[in-house]
């Protein structure tokens, strides 16, 4: 089974996101692996462990700092890693999906996984776009994928805990919401070992696509309201919350 996982390196939302012009100030933010990509990598490795095969992880290197994420993928069980050397931190989902699709074309993938979404998918997610560019069907929001022969059984999540099961003939593209098991932990020593020994294949970006969106403005949301902030030490905060709850008959 030949599984390709397309990943996205995105500005971290754990920190402040400074704005420059009409977009994020990419020079002032840390880039991290999209959180859903951890699940798509895990899902791919679980299938490899169940039925054999290889897992190739491929991503667009937007700022020259993707190696860490790729070494982590190797430490978690990927067999091969590829980076598309784009050096364009503002590349939108359409452009990244096009580059990824062109790179994946020659890989003979039975399945392509991507994270179901990313926080910077202003023009949509890369998964369904890769599917469109590769002319493969797409299914997103997956919570489990099992493969037998030429067919996958895919569980897709719906709100309220409802799930739908589908059978899908390979090849196809999936947007992984969660792997059936939490993503495995890779010890730092193993990641470091990969950094010293592994080879990252480099590919030049090929193909062009654009979101077709003119950015007019980017700013923190205009708050229609704001919480009344409770100040003080944690003990004082706790006391005020308990008092509030008691006054409302909630404690």
């Amino acid at each position: 089974m030949n599984i390709v996982v397309a990943i996205k390196h995105i500005p971290s939302i754990a920190d402040d996101l400074p704005v420059k012009g009409n977009n994020v100030d990419f020079d002032s933010v840390d880039f991290v692996l999209n959180e859903w990509d951890e699940h798509s990598i895990e899902q791919a490795v679980l299938i490899k462990e169940a039925v054999g095969g290889t897992v190739t992880v491929v991503g667009v290197d937007l700022i020259g700092e993707l190696d860490n994420a790729l070494h982590l993928a190797l430490a978690k069980g990927a067999d091969k890693v590829v980076k598309i050397t784009a050096d364009d931190p503002a590349a939108d989902s359409h452009q990244q999906a096009k580059w990824l699709a062109e790179a994946i074309k020659g890989m003979g993938a039975d399945m392509v996984f991507a994270g179901v979404q990313a926080s910077n998918d202003i023009d949509g997610q890369i998964g369904p776009m890769i599917a469109a560019y590769l002319d493969m069907p797409y299914i997103g929001g997956t919570s489990a994928i099992e493969v037998s022969g030429n067919t996958a059984t895919v569980s897709k999540e719906f709100p309220g805990g409802v799930g739908m099961k589908y059978s899908v003939t390979l090849p196809f593209v999936a947007g992984v919401q969660s792997a059936p098991k939490p993503p495995r932990y890779a010890p730092v020593s193993k990641v470091r070992q990969m950094a010293q020994t592994a080879t990252i294949e480099k590919v030049a970006p090929t193909g062009e696509a654009s979101a077709g969106l003119a950015f007019k403005k980017m700013a923190p949301p205009v708050a229609t309201g704001h919480a009344e902030m409770i100040e003080g030490s944690p003990k004082e905060v706790a006391a005020k919350i308990v008092e509030l709850l008691k006054s409302k008959g909630l404690a």
């Binding site: 939302i13 996101l17 704005v19 969106l213 950015f215 403005k217 980017m218 949301p221």
Partner: peptide, 11 residues
């Protein structure tokens, strides 16, 4: 976008 931290106005 960005987990609700930024709003992008796009045309």
């Amino acid at each position: 976008a960005y987990g609700g931290k930024l709003t992008a106005e796009v045309a």
